[in-house]
């Protein structure tokens, strides 16, 4: 199935959980997941719910991270 992450189209396996996807992208390691938040179809999914969130074809994931700013 296809999903988008920050508007970038990706082909992923069906029946994928959010947690699995993030693991595949290397975003579950402590350092890389620090300051990260995400939303699926603009609904924010809290970290504790990542493992329960099943992705569907066409889902749009927004992935943000805290960065330097004033």
């Amino acid at each position: 199935m296809q999903i988008t992450i920050n508007n970038q189209l990706m082909e992923v396996e069906a029946d994928l959980s959010l947690e699995t996807l993030l693991g595949q992208l290397g975003l579950l390691a402590e350092e890389s997941s620090q300051g990260v938040a995400l939303a699926v179809n603009r609904k924010i999914i809290s970290r504790s719910q990542w493992v329960f969130c099943q992705l569907n074809h066409g889902d749009e994931i927004t992935l943000i991270k805290a960065t330097a700013g004033g």
Partner: peptide, 27 residues
């Protein structure tokens, strides 16, 4: 203060948050 940005999956992620948290700064 900090800002937010969209994660670019093709880019190495900077980690400025680590030292701020280690030093107990409020964000």
């Amino acid at each position: 203060t900090m800002a937010l940005k969209r994660v670019d999956l093709n880019e190495q992620q900077d980690n400025i948050l680590g030292p701020l948290i280690e030093n107990n700064l409020n964000l």
